[in-house]
């Protein structure tokens, strides 16, 4: 049961989940916002692929670019229009705002496109399979691993080597003090949303390629996965999010192969129950860091 195919599948699933979790935790780290609209960035990117590839027949590289840009743009705009004015208010006000943004975006798509699912066309090479040491693996599973690796390296360079990255790490630690250095609060927060959108856009490409379709509720499942991965891994560090993503991918795949067929429909409930139980013993997640609870304004 645990063979090379399982390992690659788990790695690819874990990579995808790590991307999802990372995008969520970047914003949470700085703004202490649990962003319920995050799933909608993924959904919008999916519709961008639909528009570009299915309707306009754009070449695949352009399609992928448009998808990522769409997610980045929506993420940035939601910050600018909805979250910025609510920023100094209670954490619940922020969360409820993000929930409202999520409902808003879903219904915009519902009205403008359709409640029904739309097919998306992905690059031809996504559906190829290749053989590695006797195991048959879809090419897109290898792609997601590679892309995630590149993004993780790029992101960690950004955070370590650039001033904006330093400022973001500083802001996640002490937001007000970061402003006392002269770093504009809006710059840090907008950058976090832009990166969050970028990660959502890339993740979306791989997410919608699994079902090859997109509908207004496409964002719900990846959002949940990101939530669960983040709380499992630890919501106070980007490393925690990545670890959480991979752990979630592993547990998911293990449950898929070990649960009896009659119980498989309860798999999600099982996952959440496991996470809730886990959190009771380790409320800060796998990767523990000093709790900073300063709020941002």
């Amino acid at each position: 049961m645990i063979d090379l195919e399982f390992v690659i599948n788990t790695l690819s699933l874990g990579s995808l989940y790590a991307l999802l979790a990372l995008g969520l935790v970047l914003v949470y780290g700085i703004l202490k916002l649990v962003n319920f609209a995050y799933g909608e960035y993924i959904m919008i990117a999916g519709y961008a692929i639909y528009l570009s590839a299915t309707l306009l027949h754009a070449p695949w590289y352009l399609t992928l670019l448009i998808a990522v840009l769409a997610a980045v743009l929506v993420s940035y705009l939601t910050e600018l229009i909805a979250f910025r004015p609510v920023r100094s208010q209670s954490p619940n006000a922020l969360i409820v705002t993000s929930f409202a943004v999520s409902v808003f975006l879903q219904n915009v798509v519902l009205i403008m496109v359709s409640p029904r699912a739309r097919p998306v066309q992905l690059p031809f090479f996504f559906s190829r399979t290749i053989e590695i040491a006797g195991a048959t693996v879809p090419l897109r599973n290898l792609l997601v691993i590679a892309v995630t690796a590149v993004l993780l390296v790029a992101l960690s360079l950004l955070m370590k080597k650039t001033v904006v990255g330093m400022a973001m790490r500083a802001a996640a630690d002490k937001f007000t003090t970061t402003r006392l250095m002269g770093v504009p609060a809006n710059l840090v927060i907008s950058t976090a949303f832009v990166i969050s959108g970028l990660l959502a856009g890339v993740a979306s490409i791989f997410w919608v390629s699994r079902s090859a379709s997109v509908d207004p509720l496409t964002g719900a499942a990846p959002l949940l996965i990101a939530f669960i991965a983040v709380v499992t891994g630890g919501m106070h560090s980007t490393l925690g999010a990545v670890v959480g993503g991979f752990v979630y991918g592993l547990v998911f795949n293990l449950l898929s192969v070990t649960l009896p067929a009659s119980m498989i429909s309860y798999r999600d409930a099982f996952m959440f129950a496991l996470v809730v139980v886990f959190l009771l013993f380790r409320p800060a997640g796998i990767i523990k860091r000093g709790y900073t609870e300063e709020r941002v304004g």
């Binding site: 001033v163 330093m166 400022a167 790490r169 500083a170 630690d173 002490k174 003090t177 970061t178 006392l180 250095m181 002269g182 770093v183 860091r289 000093g290």
Partner: peptide
Amino acid sequence: EIFGTLTVEENLRLGAYVGF
């Protein structure tokens, strides 16, 4: 209010943020 997770170097670099 030192940035505890940043190095001394990075703390100083952020201090020099204005008019770098």
